[in-house]
Write a protein that binds this DNA or RNA. Sequence first.
RNA 1: GGCCUCGUAGUUCAAUGGAUAGAAUAGGAGUUUCCUAAACUCUAGAUGCAGGUUCGAUUCCUGCCGAGGCUACCA
Length: 594
Amino acid sequence: MSIEQRLQEEVSQAFNQLFDFKLKPEEVAIQPTRKEFEGSHTFVTFQYLKITKKSPEQSGQAIGEYLRQHSDIVQDFNVVKGFLNLVIADNVWLSSLNDLRKNENYGQLPANGQKVMVEYSSPNTNKPLHLGHLRNNFIGYSVSEILKANGYEVMKVQIVNDRGIHICKSMVAYEKFGDGETPESSNTKGDHLIGKYYVKFDQEYKKEIQALVAAGKDSETAEKTAPILLEAQDTLQKWERRDQKTVDLWKKMNGWVYKGFDDTYHKMGVDFDKYYYESDTYLLGKDIVDQGLSSKVLYRNDDGSVWIDLEEDGLDKKLLLRSDGTSVYMTQDLGTADMRHQDYPFDKCIYVVGNEQDYHFKVLFLILKKLGKDFADGLHHLSYGMVDLPSGKMKSREGTVVDADELIADMLETATAKTKELGKIEGFTTKQATALYEVLGLGALKYFLLKVDPKKRMLFNPSESIEFQGNTGPFIQYTHARIAAILRRAKELNVVEDFNAESISLQSPERELIRLLSEYPLKVREAGENYSPSVIAQYVYDLAKEYNRFYAELSIFGEEDQNIVSFRVALSGAVTQVIKKGMTLLGIIVPERM
RNA sequence: GGCCUCGUAGUUCAAUGGAUAGAAUAGGAGUUUCCUAAACUCUAGAUGCAGGUUCGAUUCCUGCCGAGGCUACCA
């Protein structure tokens, strides 16, 4: 049982004894004590005054007095206004350190028998990945790891948007201007090559529009009738008719893109258990629409189109089948959700998708619920905010995107330069040094994107956002490497990590470190409940920061008392383990030296 | 227009309705015969505006101002 839980029990007993009131232990609100007061746990009395029928101060005093006399773990207390600050005995801290040290699975909750599907990444195949995708992928991967730590069985999937007008645009431009170029012939990553033709399409399209306008057409007509656009639409129709030549080209070009994506995913350190392809799923959902019609959840218009009316729920009417009987995005998503639930009978399914689709998912989930799908309650849209640039939103057509591959390469370069400048790679082989640069560059990038609450929009300034000092990935990695050095030295000196708790009186950074360590499982749970890697990121930073304070203030091997040396080495070992676990949840590797 | 987010130090981010609103960075001042200075210490600096609910509001409610998003028989 954690210290917090024990306190809840004891406060509950105090209420029973002092005020003859049955307060459930889980209803006892304990919060961390602010730095400037003595103690580690604080019980706030205000909300219980109706029960105690005393002033805040008197209530705190009474409960504090009771705990000091009857509690096994409370050594002392003080009351400031209505806040009862509790001081936990050192031996309690020390034994809790020993408990968590011995627990290899510390922070890993037991399996809860529930299955979760996490969908993330899900790119279009007409252009390379960009900064927004990086945030998506890092969040998706990290949330999957966090859910595993919370006892879920996790299936990571993505649905590749491999068909549609966008890829046809690249295809048309490639046929017109490609001249047989391949990734090999031009030494270009496949996804970048396709992206090049997507941009080319847009340039030609704009030229044609201008020409048409110059010839006297109004701009709206020009936009709709530009020959190259008609060609793209024609290509889409040929694709849907399974025209062999079109399908062959489509396969070839998508193949190039997948190779490029795989390369980027590999560099990013993310992976998937299963891929879905929209070319396989875009026709799904019609049978669900039929069911919906017969159960009268949906209705058919005079022109034959099928709709659902969500106005009672404060939303609009939504189209589900066009008048010509073809489906729309929503239809396909209905079908896909149903199919995925059959593939993998999940209890929860998390869609990691940007917040511009908030409305879409609200509608999707509501329709599934109205159609009586029992899995609808387990669906969750993990809606994350856009990554903005100082110039505003990224727009691929305006060339203001930050390319994922380029950014990763930049990070590596910066990490390399920084490391060399600090002269930190003495004794490293070239291979080790390269590996370290990757770990640091990627760590900085991932931490930067994950430390912010996913829900919030965030700003990325290419020239100054990624730092290696302060609240950053490398700061935490550095702390880990420092501790690793301590542990290596301890091994050389044959320091045993077992210590005698009786004779140790804790210094404040030591007590604070153990307190932080004991919070870790709570943070894992909080991160899981909120689908928020940022909870872990902030926590690991706090832990690393506190360790550095400890490191600066107290000597480990300079201490004469060998028992204290053992204790400090043991504490360091526990800190490094938790840092590593936490960073692993974020998908960030921590180095042994740097 | 309607609907949904969001406004916190110069800047980028924190804060289950709790105490004197935390960090980082940029600024100022320091720390290395001592386990890695990518570190540590000190200093200065913020809740858009106006009301309301509450013992207590950055947090909840209303209005205003400002930023962004959604509002396709596109995906």
